[in-house]
């Protein structure tokens, strides 16, 4: 029996059987997520601790390298920043007055809840997609830390992406510069709606595409784009980026162009996850 089994398993037959198994696996995962979910959860117990460990090791070296930055650079920065502090103090005073007025007006309109600052939790980026074709990345918090699908992720003051998959100890974030990402945005000054789409041909230069501005929109380079009020996944008013260039489309019905994102995707190490989802605010969804 053993002999016959051995005679049956020639390399060609093993090859054919493995390919067949791969196709079956693909077919199963088209129709249900259970296999891939189970595999991922199982592998996570091995891989996430290893990734975390290596990342913290890398962090030590990185910090050391940063400490070695030249003195002149730092001094230059100090002078620059002192100048900026003065500007900002002045601006801050003005804004404080505005904020006071705003809160008074909001109370009048009973809009407090919708605009209140959202609860956030910090997470560390522990890995990026293992292939060259997408910009997904992994953060070190999962369902055990209260992460849920569709939570918005920001870094600095700009939108980074949205959680698409959640596992016990980690979550996958799809960034807004990824090719299949779509965000409904609006011009912060006038509220004109537009679409913000990632594009692989622009990924290299760190830009994202903005389309569907109506032709009469008064938009120019430097204008800020924020997430719109009509988006069903993204909370309203998160800064996406600033318009880099814009031009009318061939049809003369719409305008499109590119945006420089506010978040720095090159050096993404720590991100903030907003633990309120749009579904929570609108009341549909759990």
């Amino acid at each position: 029996m053993k002999q016959r089994l051995k005679a049956f398993f020639t390399p060609v037959r093993i090859f054919a059987l493995t390919l067949f198994a791969c196709i079956i696996l693909a077919l199963i995962s088209i129709f249900s997520d259970t296999v891939s979910q189970a595999l991922r959860t199982g592998l996570d117990t091995v891989i996430v601790p290893m990734q975390k460990g290596i990342n913290s090791l890398g962090g030590v070296f990185y910090d050391h390298a940063v400490n070695l930055a030249t003195r002149e650079e730092l001094e230059q920065q100090v002078t620059d920043l002192t100048g900026r502090i003065e500007d900002l103090q002045e601006e801050n005073q003005r804004l404080a007055q505005d904020a006071y007025e705003l809160s008074r007006l909001r109370r009048l309109y009973a809009l407090d809840e919708q605009y209140a600052s959202w609860p956030k939790t910090a997470a560390r980026v522990i890995g990026s997609g293992s292939d060259n074709w997408d910009m997904e990345f992994t953060i070190d918090k999962g369902s055990n830390d209260g992460m849920r699908v569709d939570m918005n992720v920001i870094a600095g003051n700009g939108l980074v992406g949205i959680i698409t998959e959640v596992y016990p100890n980690r979550s996958i974030v799809r960034s807004i510069i990824e090719d299949n990402s779509y965000v409904s945005g609006m011009l912060s000054s006038t509220g004109q709606i537009c679409s913000v789409q990632g594009d692989i041909t622009l990924m290299e230069s760190g830009q994202i595409r903005v389309t569907d501005f109506s032709a009469d929109t008064d938009v120019k380079a430097g204008d800020e784009i924020v997430t719109s009020n009509i988006s069903d996944k993204y909370l309203q008013g998160i800064l996406i980026g600033t318009v880099r260039d814009i031009s009318a489309d061939g049809s003369q019905i719409t305008k499109s162009g590119t945006i420089t994102p506010a978040a720095d995707f090159e050096n993404l190490q720590e991100v903030l996850v907003i633990t309120t989802t749009k579904a929570d605010l609108t009341g549909d969804g759990s």
């Binding site: 696996l25 693909a26 088209i30 296999v35 891939s36 991922r40 592998l43």
Partner: peptide, 19 residues
């Protein structure tokens, strides 16, 4: 399979090609 599970593509694609 490892590449598929952590990559963005359909489970089995990379496994098929790597085999």
């Amino acid at each position: 399979i490892l590449a598929d599970v952590y990559g963005g593509t359909l489970l089995g694609t990379s496994a098929f090609l790597f085999v």
